[in-house]
Amino acid sequence: MSATKTTDHLPIGQNRLRGESSSASALAGIGCRKGAPLADVLAAIEAALAVNGLARAHLAALATIALKRDEPAIADAARALGVPLVVVSEAAARDASARCPTSSAASLAATGIACVSEAAALAASGGRLAHPRAVRGAAACAIATSSLREPRS
């Protein structure tokens, strides 16, 4: 079962519910159009993991901005993958926006954030992006990582 937690920063490799260490070392930031299908969100996550050379077992959590917290496909993806959903504040996402390699005019107009997926990943993880976001259909995913350890089982 997954949980939603609003935060400005959570270290990668921490169990978001109990604060325990885990071997998961990647956080997937998610952005999507309103009403995006679950299949697009999952496809974007898989594509972003693949570009980063990571397996699903490396995934510690999904993250998005507060404006997207009620998007069904994002919450459903977290449940399907068995990871928590971290919701970052708009302020934290805007602060992280300056470090995003991607800038979307549509995202800026709608949210004031250059790239929701990249900013959410950076703000929630405190880590770094190795690659820009992956886009599949109506969804985008960016992976933030810290020092990689063995995948969780």
Rank of each mutant, 00 (worst) to 15 (best):
L122P: 06
A91W: 08
S22D: 10
L122M: 03
A3K: 14
S117D: 09
D76E: 13
L62E: 01
A57V: 09
T111E: 10
P72I: 03
S25C: 13
L54G: 00
A57Y: 06
A123T: 04
C100W: 06
A92G: 13
V116Y: 00
E71C: 09
D40F: 01
P151A: 04
A120E: 00
L42A: 08
L42K: 09
V86S: 06
R18T: 13
T64S: 14
V88T: 03
P151C: 05
V83G: 01
A138L: 06
G137W: 01
S89K: 02
S23F: 11
S146Y: 08
A114N: 13
A75V: 14
A24M: 09
A66I: 08
A142T: 05
P101R: 00
V83H: 01
E118I: 09
S2V: 13
A39I: 02
G35M: 05
V51Y: 08
G31W: 05
L54Q: 00
S107I: 09
K68E: 02
D8L: 07
A114V: 09
A28H: 04
H131V: 08
G112W: 00
L27Q: 07
S103A: 15
A96M: 02
L108I: 12
A130E: 15
G53W: 03
A140I: 02
A93T: 06
A73W: 05
A110N: 09
V87E: 04
K34F: 10
L108M: 14
D70S: 15
D70E: 14
A80E: 11
P37K: 01
A78S: 10
G112M: 00
A130W: 12
L59G: 07
C32S: 11
G29A: 07
E20D: 15
G137D: 01
A109M: 05
A139M: 07
L27I: 15
D40Y: 00
L81N: 02
A43N: 11
P11M: 06
P132Y: 03
S153R: 15
A106F: 11
R152L: 14
I74G: 04
E20L: 15
N52I: 13
T7P: 12
A139L: 05
C141K: 05
A110S: 11
M1N: 13
A134P: 03
S117T: 10
A36Q: 04
A109E: 10
A120G: 03
P101Q: 02
D40H: 03
K5F: 10
A55V: 13
G13L: 02
A77I: 09
E20V: 13
S2D: 12
H58D: 09
L122T: 06
A138C: 07
A43D: 11
I143T: 10
A48E: 03
A66L: 08
P84W: 01
L129N: 00
R133E: 04
L38A: 09
G127S: 07
A61S: 13
S125N: 06
H58N: 11
L42I: 09
D40C: 01
S21C: 11
R99D: 14
R94G: 07
C100N: 08
E150N: 12
A55D: 13
T111V: 14
V51T: 13
A140S: 12
G13R: 00
A50K: 11
N52K: 10
A121Y: 03
P132N: 02
R133H: 06
M1R: 14
L85D: 06
T4D: 12
E150S: 15
A139R: 04
P72K: 04
